[in-house]
Structures are given as C-alpha cells and as structure tokens.
Design a protein around this nucleic acid. Sequence first.
DNA 1: TTATTTTTTTAGATTTGTCTAAACATTTAG
DNA 2: CTAAATGTTTAGACAAATCTAAAAAAATAA
Lengths: 217, 217
Amino acid sequence: MQSFTEENYLKIIYHLSENNEEAVQTNAIAEKMQTKAASVTDMLRKLSEKELILYKKYQGARLTPIGRQTAINVIRKHRLWEVFLVEKLNFKWDEVHDIAEELEHINSPELVERLDEFLAFPKNDPHGDPIPDKNGKFDFVPFVKLTKLKKEESGLIMGVSEHSSAFLKHLEKLGLTLGKSLAISTINDFDGSIEIIVENKRISVTREIAKHILIRI
Amino acid sequence: MQSFTEENYLKIIYHLSENNEEAVQTNAIAEKMQTKAASVTDMLRKLSEKELILYKKYQGARLTPIGRQTAINVIRKHRLWEVFLVEKLNFKWDEVHDIAEELEHINSPELVERLDEFLAFPKNDPHGDPIPDKNGKFDFVPFVKLTKLKKEESGLIMGVSEHSSAFLKHLEKLGLTLGKSLAISTINDFDGSIEIIVENKRISVTREIAKHILIRI
DNA sequence: TTATTTTTTTAGATTTGTCTAAACATTTAG
DNA sequence: CTAAATGTTTAGACAAATCTAAAAAAATAA
C-alpha cells in the first residue's frame, strides 16, 4: 500500500503525462506538489524502487502499468467523491475539490464500488471529467480548448481544466457552466481575449480563462 | 490541526476515561494504540505541550476541554460515517468499523454537517452508540452489561462495546442484534455462561461475549 | 519496610518526507 | 563550440512517530 504522499506523486505524474508522451520532469512535479526539486528527486527514486515509475537520473519519470493503475484508481475515487458531494450533499462544483483531495486516499475497494453503485455509475464528475470504471477504463470524449476555436465557430462547454474555487466561481458568474452552448463572436488581436455569445448574451473572457474551458464542437 | 495519530490518541484517551474519573495510564494507551509504552510517553508529552491533555510524569493523562472536544468530534465523524455506510451503501454492521476509522479523519466541518443532515440527524450509530451533535452533546442512554443481569431479569439489546467483525458476526448468528428483547433463563455457576431467551429460543452465551452486550432494562 | 515486580521514562536509533546549499548535467545562446 | 543559464541530483540536516534497551519511579508483596 502507498502513502498519501506517494499517491499524490503518482496522480500528478499521471496528469502531467496525460496529453504528452514525454517523461515528466522533476521541476514540473515540484511545482504541482508545492515542494522543492530535491524532495522530488528523493521521491522519484523511491517510487522507482517500488516499480511504480520508470526513472533514470536527469531523464524524468514515466508511470509503469502498475503506477498508472494506482494513479487512475486515485482519480476514480476523487471524481466519484466529487459526484457524491454535489449530487447527494448539495455542495457546489467549486466547493468539492479540496474535500475530494482528502477522500481520494480512503483505502477500501468495496467502498468505492458501492459508492459508484449508489451514485448510479456516473460517467463524469461535476467538472466534466470522465470517471474511470473499476478496470481503469474511461471513454475519452474529444475536446478542444476554447482558445483553439476560431471566429464564428461554436460548441458546447463540456469540461474545465482548472478546479480552483476562484476560477469556478468566476465561470459561474459569467454563466459559463457545463452543457452551455457558445459561439465565438470576435477574437481581440490586442490581448487575445475572446468575445463569445452564450444564451444570447455577449461576454468577454480573457485568454487565461479561455484556455481552461474545454469545448466539444 | 492535529495529525491522524494525535487524533487517534485523543480518541483512545477519551474512551479509556469514559467510565472512569481516573487519569489514563501509559500502558493502557499503548495496548489500544498497538504500540509501545515508550512511544506513548513521547506522544503524551507532545499532546500536553499542545494543551490537549493534562499530563504529569508517572501520573497518567486527562483530556483538557479542548482535547475532549477534539476527541468527541472525531467520534462524531466516525459514527456518522458508519450510519452512512450501513444506511446508504448497504454495508453490514460488522463491516463498517475499519472504513470509518479512516473516514473519521477527513477534515471538513461543512462536510460533517451536510452528512449529518443527509442522514436525517441520526441519534445512534449501527452499533447503538450515541452520536454527539455538532456541539459535542449527546444524550446518554443508561445501560448495563448483560453480565450484570440476574436470573429472570429481562431487557432490550441497545448496544455493544466491541466492534470487531468477528464479534458482530457471531452475535448476528446468535440472533442478538440491536433492539431484540431478551430474558435471563439461568446463569451457569461453573463458567459464568448465561442462558438467555431471545424470540422464544434458548441460547447460551459465554461471559466474554455477554460483557460486550449492552442492555436497557 | 525492605525487596521484588510492574510501570513509566530516558537515551539513542530508525524511517518518511521534507529542506538548504552546493555540486553536477544538460540545454541554450552567443 | 565554448560559456552561461537552467534543471537535477547529492550531501547533510530536521521533525514526526516509532522502536529497543536500560534506567528510574511507583506499586505490591513478603
């Protein structure tokens, strides 16, 4: 069994290699873990000894099949608990991330399966992220970042890639919630900010916001 | 905020002083924590520095008001999660203790209050133990151990003082579950074992079993 | 009340995850 | 292609929670 810390490292390595075949670098992990590169090096050696990652000095890290399975299981738990918090306990989508960060480390396979069943086997969490099934499989829904859309193009909001309360509250205030359809009106040359139409209202979002909004065309 | 370990020490000190005004001894804590007396001494010093317990060398430990409040809050969470596991996820009463030992350390006051509400403010957990309210108050239901009952006396099973799966499964097999009414038929002089009548059936329980069954007369 | 037993504490070591400072590799730029 | 900048690792230290072995205090018994 892994410690909470080890599980968090695996989860972060998983997320950092999700859209990317390359090995994950020490500094990238350090930033996400809010720790120092030296600490990461120590942990990478340890995870490597446990055969949860492949690691060569100066070459970065990759998950082994077992490491990946472990990471996906933590992610599965995180997302199921988020659904529980929103659907059953009436939390808002911007309130659940930190609590789920704790709950994801509860170690009881039976609990996870029963929770999944209790929630009627949800396919996505409150932020639109897919929930892996008990075998670690999840159906990949194709998406693009809002920043990739061109003038006149339109699509549906189907996810976000940033889960902080501040960001999600901001989206909510703008009316940019899951399932809403939007169309690009204009893209501002000057600062890259994007004018969009949502429910017949025209709003403006900065590039920084837009890059965390995931669209299905 | 306290570590899981500190919370477990506080909880154990609370339970050990529940039926007893005396200070709790090092060895008693060591046994419950499955650790060595030397480790307990170190932790008692630490908890004392944090003013969660009163501790003098060789004199044992007592909870301070803050220490007691902390312990009760952990117990509140443990018991609420047990209700959740049994009522919502259909676990059996003998399956929930270990999972609740993990869940009790999740730190989110908001989560606890919403869980309490979701469960409709239960007064007792699946083993009959009272659930403290958010102010740490719980109504004490008077009980006696089954071993205290005399020939011909009768009462209702309203709790157990041992939560291991093995013990609870055994009770279940004997039909000795919460709410059942029973009467003492005879008490065996030889080994102290007790013959009882439950639902018109006569069964025999050892003293060791009987002392963990709590009765309301 | 002295001696023995039990309980508790101290001293010193270990493991986990972290840190800083310095050394070492790799990449990038001139 | 060397030099500077960036990224990574090593060395040595620390705090938390634990351990063993030995010393000290308290309780019990003769």
